[in-house]
Every structure is written in structure tokens, then in C-alpha cells.
Design a protein around this nucleic acid. Structure first.
Lengths: 334, 334
DNA sequence: CTACCGTTGTACAACGTTGCAAACATCGTT
DNA sequence: AACGATGTTTGCAACGTTGTACAACGGTAG
């Protein structure tokens, strides 16, 4: 069915290995042989069998990208960037959807997917520090998102505390004093915790009080969760005049709740999101958001992973903080 | 490094083949041997090497999903569904981003990715009928989207003509008479052409005139294209009172242009999108849209592909039309 | 003319797995 | 005691590739 080296060798009248040498640009092949083999290859449509090559070389040229879900815009945009960054280096990306379930995350990260991939970039939601460390020891692994405490694995994350602080400060700077936050909760993730810290720091800097009644809990970071949280907040704290959301989807849901609640944005309530997904430009009004450099995130992650894959020896875990900026749009007066 | 059958066999004191039999649930293995081997396997953390397995069996358990881009919400949502449908059947999905470039689409669809995947589900943008046919002949292939003329390959597509007609009819039913369409253009895709037909049919059914000045061209189907098209339309045809967009992103862009143009939606202009992405629920106002059953699309595509992969013989090309419905929201009066 | 060299091509083994067919063990039957 | 029948285990070969080692070749220097 498929054309193999053997078939090409036979047709070209050379040995299998010679064809292999041509394919691999081994230098000591005469020009004449090389061109003859090349033409037979293209004529027969030969394609190397990656499975066999991997079996022999121990490399597949495949990396996994493990995400909680693909449909969330931030992850989708990030995936696009990771695929592009990987392609530049001749790698193919296998995208894995974990649903944020620990078991699934472990499987994906162990990369193991049955020895299929050479390394994994993961954005863990439910994995514990122990899981990560165990897996990272035997398999090249780079984590997206906040560094888990005491975990010796490479990380790429934007500075959540600083970014959240800047976002909240912006609300304060435009005169808001009753600033809610959406994305808190019992099951808060590390990311959520850091963003909450940033928010609290900004309040403290401005001498504003911390008030738990301004915390809008959200188990997931999707639009409906932001909507529900904002509705609850409006009932108990009708005096809210600013909202900082831990991601854009929450903010988009909150926007709807504000609209339904008869609040004008930004006149009555100003709102800031996080991630700067494309959708932010088209909400009504357009959404101010913390914009991480997604391209830099993807580039760094792939670069770190490639280094891990190449050098199997022990290496200090590294942390990269790609830049971010606050993009101010109409939802805060723009 | 990695644990192989050999290692397990040695540790369990049996032959390699016996371990293999246990792994593959070969029935004639004594319970005693089976459980002993099982425990060694889990203790040593053995994982079958997929490359070797594929090399031997000619199957990798991997299928490719080739999309123009991952970040577009419709594709992202679809990808989520395809991954889920594939997982149910024990398959892993490798997502390929083509950028809508023909060369890239060919590579992806040829599945080839160096004999890595067993089959491909592709959503072609630039590939020609000839490309598709050539590739489909040697590699299991299922296409998402409209059937290309005279191509003998399996297709899964919703009935674009019928859906577009229903969407336009809805605008007419609520009293609109000057109905623009966004997504036309010289480089119109097959999908665009069918949706245009549906629009024209609905106008004809209602005895409304066809008018090229109501065509809003768009090369891509992204938010900015919808925005630009709507702005142009408003200049030349300020009397527009209804808009049918070929997808939701175009509609979302158009919504912004309408807002900026001082038009109230739906009072002054009603608007309908296509795809029913999650974002529709959160636009202002929420967007009426044609909602394809994405889950059914994904299920059908994977099912057809699996059949192709199993039966290598010639098979009549099949076409599946998953259901859709028009979800009416406030952008048309809700 | 021989010895040596560098260049080019080849043979063989191995990566980890599974299909096939044969070997082995156990048991009941003749 | 020999013989199938049945159930269980194993050895071998092969999938397509590449690394290693070596053979064949032509040319050059002694």
C-alpha cells in the first residue's frame, strides 16, 4: 500500500540504506545517485513512516498540548500560537483536552499517550504538585500558568499579581471606589489566588477596605459563571461601581448581567477583564482587559520544551514571565 | 529508559509474548498468570509503545482534524466535539491548522503527516476538487462542509441552502423588507454560494427584489470583515432593516458597526447569524443564529471516518446532513 | 606495482510490538 | 499406556527505519 524505502531502493537500483541516506541528507552520496534517488522518491510519492522512524530513533517530532478545553477562546488562541511556534521548529502538536480532570491531566502530561509524544506543554487545572513533579521527572514537561508551590518544573506564566494589581489600580485611577472581583471561591485555583492578591494589593495601596461581600464566586471561568456572579453581587451590593474579572469570559457574562440590571457601562459600573481575547473588541462596550503576549507565551513554552527534550540531563527549573499590558477600552471609559 | 514488554516479561518470569497477550486481552491466559503479569505491569509502570504497535499493526489510533484555524469559535467548538467523539472510540485527535492554504491542506489531508494518522477529517477552504479526490482515494478522508462538485468523498454538512433560506425567511416574517447579506464576494466559497442561494430563494419566495447593492462582501469570515462590510452597506443603503450574515463572527462585527452607526437592534435593523457559537448568547443584543447540531456533525464525521478506516474496499461516497434549527434571540426581536 | 587513502555504497542488527504456528501441560478417554 | 482434546504458553518473523561497521571503488603517492 504505502511506499517504503525498500520499494524506492528496488526501483532506483540501489540499497535501502542509500535511499535512507538520501532522505536524511547524509553527505557522502554522489550527486548522480542522489538525484536519481530523489526523482524516484518524488515519482513514487514516498513518505517516510514516522512510526518506524520514531521506533528507531526514539523521537516522534510530536509534542502534546494539554488544555482543559479547546473551545474557550483564550485556549483556542493560545493553541493557535503554540501550533505556529512548534511548526517553526518542525514539530507537530497534538492537542489534548483534559476537561480539567486530574486523571486525564495526568495521562496527558505523562505524555505518555503511550510514548507517542516527545514532550508536553500542559495547562493544569486539577493536577497536584506531586503529580506534576513525578511526571516532569521522566518526561519533558513545561507548564503554562502559575508556578505550583515547590515544583521543580519549567513554567511560563504572566505575572498574575502584578497584572491584577494594575487592572484594579486602573479602576481606582478612574475614580471607582466600590470595586468587586469575580472569580473567587472555595475551589479557587492558584491563578485565582494570585489575581485576588493583586486586587487586594491595589485596594490596600489606595487605602480602600477589603470586603468579602464584593467577592463574586465562580467555580468555572465561563460566561455563565460571570453572569451569575454579577447578578448575585448586584443584589447584595447595588453600590458597586467597578468590577475586576479574573478572565474575559467572566467579564462578558458580567456585562450581560449589568445590562440586564440596568447599569450603564462604564458610567455606572466600569469593568476590566483578563486575557484580551478577540471578543473583547466586539462586546458592548468594548472590554478593557489585561493582554498577555500570547505569542511570547507560546514561543517561550515551545522553546523551553525543546531545550528539555534535547538535553536529558538535570536542569534547574526555569520560569519565564512573558510581558503583558493593560488595554484600555470603553468599558472603563477608554 | 521506558519500560518495554521485555522488561516486564523478565520481571514476571514469563515470555514477552505472554505479556503481550495479557496486554491485548488474549483470552487463553490463565488467571494466575494474568494477574501476576498485571501486577508487574502496573508496578513497573509499563506503557505500550504506540510507535512500535503502529508499525506492527499498521494502525496508530490517531486521526487528524484539519481546520483553517483553531481560534475561530466555531472551529474550536467543533474541535471539542470531535475530540470527544473520537475519544469514545478510543481514538486520539491530532489537530492541524492549515490557515486555509492549499498546500497545507493537502499535506494535512493526505494524512500523511508521514503516515502518522489512520484517517483525516478536514474542513477544506482552498483545496480543489481534484486535490480532495486524489487524496481521498488513498487515505480515509471525511470532509466537513459543503460537498464539492463531483467529488467522491464522504461529506458531513448542514443544509446551507435550507438554513440560509429559513434565516432569511425569519427576517421577512418579522416584517423586514430591505435585507442585506454579509459574506459575499468574488472569492466566495462553496459554502458562501449556497448560503447566498438560500437567501435569494427566500427573497424570491416573498416576492422581494434581488439587489446587489445589498451584498456585503467579505473575504474572511471574521469579526472585522463583518464590521467593515456593514459600515460600507450603511453608507450606500441606509434603508437596510435586516441583515443575514453567513456566520456569527460576521454578525458580531456587523453588530458593532450598527451600534456605531446609531442603529438600534432589532428595532431599526434585525440581524441573524450562522453557527450559533456560545458568544451569541452574550452579544448585545443576543444574536439570533442558525444552530447546527455540532455534536451530530462531529459524531457523524468520526463515525464515517471509522467506517472508512475499517473497510478499505471501495465504498460509495456518503453524505450526511445533521440537523439544524434557527435559534431566535433578541437581535430579531426574540 | 603496491600500499594507502578518501569517498561512496551496502549488510546487518536493532528499536518494541504482534500474528502465526508450534510446543507444552493437563486431563479424560479408550 | 497411548491418544486426543483442550487450554496455555512460547519462539520466530516481520513491520520500516537508521547506526555501525565494513566492502568496493578509484585515485594518489611511494
Amino acid at each position: 500500500m504505502a511506499v517504503s524505502l525498500k520499494d524506492v531502493a528496488q526501483a532506483a537500483g540501489v540499497s535501502i540504506k542509500t535511499v535512507s541516506n538520501v532522505v536524511n541528507d547524509y553527505p557522502f552520496v554522489s550527486d548522480e545517485t542522489r538525484s536519481r534517488v530523489q526523482s524516484v522518491i518524488s515519482q513514487m510519492g514516498y513518505r517516510p513512516n514516522l512510526s518506524a522512524r520514531r521506533l528507531r530513533k526514539g523521537r516522534s517530532g510530536l509534542i502534546a498540548l494539554s488544555l482543559p478545553e479547546i473551545a474557550a477562546p483564550y485556549f483556542a488562541e493560545l493553541a493557535d500560537q503554540v501550533v505556529a511556534a512548534a511548526e517553526k521548529r518542525g514539530l507537530t502538536v497534538l492537542i489534548d483536552k483534559t476537561g480539567g480532570q486530574r486523571g486525564h491531566e495526568q495521562i496527558a502530561a505523562s505524555g505518555i499517550r503511550d510514548n507517542l509524544v516527545d514532550g508536553t506543554i500542559a495547562s493544569p487545572l486539577a493536577m497536584t504538585a506531586r503529580d506534576v513533579e513525578t511526571l516532569g521527572r521522566t518526561h519533558p514537561l513545561v507548564l503554562l500558568g502559575e508556578r505550583l508551590a515547590h515544583v521543580a518544573v519549567d513554567h511560563v506564566a504572566i505575572d498574575s499579581v502584578g497584572a491584577a494589581r494594575a487592572a484594579t489600580k486602573h479602576l481606582i485611577d478612574i475614580g471607582r471606589r466600590v470595586i468587586a472581583v469575580i472569580g473567587t471561591g472555595d475551589q479557587i485555583s492558584k491563578t485565582g489566588r494570585l489575581r485576588l492578591h493583586g486586587y487586594e494589593e491595589a485596594l490596600a495601596d489606595a487605602g480602600l477596605p477589603q470586603d468579602p461581600s464584593l467577592h463574586g464566586d465562580a467555580v468555572w471561568f465561563h460566561r455563565p459563571d460571570g453572569y451569575a456572579a454579577m447578578r448575585r453581587l448586584l443584589i447584595h451590593r447595588p453600590d458597586i461601581d467597578g468590577v475586576f474579572c479574573f478572565n474575559d469570559l467572566l467579564a462578558i457574562g458580567a456585562l450581560r448581567a449589568l445590562r440586564e440590571g440596568g447599569r450603564r457601562v462604564p458610567e455606572d459600573v466600569a469593568i476590566v477583564g483578563f486575557d484580551d481575547v478577540e471578543e473583547c473588541l466586539y462586546t458592548s462596550p468594548p472590554l478593557t482587559s489585561v493582554s498577555p503576549d500570547k505569542r511570547a507565551v507560546a514561543e517561550s513554552a515551545v522553546e523551553l520544551l525543546v531545550q528539555r527534550m534535547e538535553d536529558t540531563g538535570p536542569m534547574q527549573p526555569r520560569e519565564v514571565f512573558p510581558p503583558y499590558r493593560l488595554v484600555i477600552r470603553e468599558s472603563t471609559g477608554g
